[in-house]
Design a binder for these strands. Structure first.
Lengths: 245, 245
DNA sequence: ACATGTTTATTGGTCCGACCAATGGAAAGT
DNA sequence: ACTTTCCATTGGTCGGACCAATAAACATGT
């Protein structure tokens, strides 16, 4: 036993409280819809101040585990999680310089390939209809020169496609990456040509024919060309982080 | 103008504060390593109580945007984000019943296929050496009957492979999914046979030969069989959430 | 001079007690 | 029976106090 004394972890009270509640959730003791005791009671139970309890609850709220609601029948209710947090995480990592734009677009391209292949096999008629409607809408917006609105529709296309895989996790992963893409798509300004529309028409045709290889090709080629254009347009908007160590 | 009066958003002060700070970060005005003014000053600047500022800072800390440090030269420092939060999000979504175990394993399988294909093309000698060392270690633990420790090594294998793609985003995505896998791998108890080891040896051989198809096959077959075994062993550990709307 | 211990100023961490604001149900009035 | 008013409950905010950690400035001893 050379150097393994005590780690000495000065944990914050609020973190201790939120940890205990989280354990109750992980164990299944607390489930979606359940209500926690009021802050004042929790303070007494845990033997800490209401402020500490409050910080714990706010943390859990931020994590999407609970939702706070004021008023008579209000309180802290166990929620269902928030898929949007995944996208937020990536946004932060990008803004803080921990991941690059190039890595994001590359990962997105890889994910999109998988998505389109799976979706090609599983997409329902309703999925295909929604995708078609989406492209129609995008074309309408393009003609109306509403380039900024078009971006959101384009992003929605990828989300629809990901949902067509029938796998919520995959939909969330793609959704997260697309959230970051949204940011700099708006920053870079929307495309004003119809290349995307045409590529999507080809993709839809392949999907209807259940031709996975053609669908993947259509998707990949389009994203590759987009990637090239973005790379030219977006100068790195941040100098490399100077280590804070 | 039929019904578009005022949205009436009763935002919390602390959220308003954290939002303003976040904007400064997004705009690049605040960068990794920068220090925010002390809580008491921020309270005066924003014209709110110190408690409100504190909640805002704790929220940002939870998000990985800042790190709080007590003491004389302490304060709130802009951080670099925390990739672990992505895994936490999925863990929460799973625990709260918003995503199923099956969707997680399926998405993991898809991602792993992509990862192994890319890694096959890009892995450096150092990557391959690390992967080989990992499998050796796993074999050692298996012989020592340290099944629980073996799980973590097995998970590390996937992370190493993902890192071998050279894409940090992909490594984070895989890392996040594997974090959830870790939970129920431990809950289900580690495998006690050497099937995984053998599959990994085949995978490594394919990687060394840069035979992408063989590598993908080795990975996929193994994960598929694992998936089948898990499905038998893990009964859904939670009844379907009764909606709380 | 140098090393070591002590003080002190700074800053996050916690607590208390009070009051405000939202909300739904109970009581009162019609 | 319906509407209005009131009230208890519960989160949201505040101010001020004190504790705890920390590093710099200072004092002390060799």
């Amino acid at each position: 036993m050379s150097q393994d004394f005590a780690p000495i972890k000065r944990k914050r009270l609020s973190d201790e409280v939120s940890a205990q509640i989280q354990v109750r959730i992980a164990s299944g003791e607390l489930r979606s819809g359940d209500k926690l005791p009021p802050e004042r009671e929790l303070a007494e139970i845990f033997g800490v101040s209401r402020g500490a309890v409050r910080e714990a609850l706010r943390n859990l709220e931020r994590t999407g585990l609970i939702a706070l609601q004021a008023g008579a029948r209000g309180g802290a209710f166990i929620g269902q999680g928030d898929p949007g947090l995944i996208g937020d995480s990536f946004r932060n990592l990008y803004q803080l310089g921990s991941v690059s734009l190039d890595e994001l677009t590359e990962a997105r391209l890889w994910l999109a390939s998988t998505v389109v292949r799976i979706a090609c096999a599983r997409a329902t008629d309703a999925d295909l209809a929604a995708l078609t409607a989406n492209v129609d809408e995008a074309e309408r917006l393009l003609k109306a020169r509403r380039y900024d609105d078009k971006i959101d529709i384009h992003i929605e296309f990828h989300n629809l496609l990901a949902r067509a895989t029938g796998n919520a996790v995959m939909a969330m992963l793609m959704g997260a990456l697309m959230e970051v893409m949204r940011d700099f798509a708006h920053a870079a300004g929307g495309e004003r040509n119809d290349l995307t529309i045409k590529a999507r028409r080809r993709l839809l045709a392949a999907l209807h024919k259940r031709d996975a290889d053609a669908a993947v090709t259509a998707m990949t080629e389009h994203l590759e060309s987009l990637r090239g254009r973005y790379r030219d347009r977006m100068k790195p908007h941040r100098a490399k982080a100077k280590g804070m160590n």
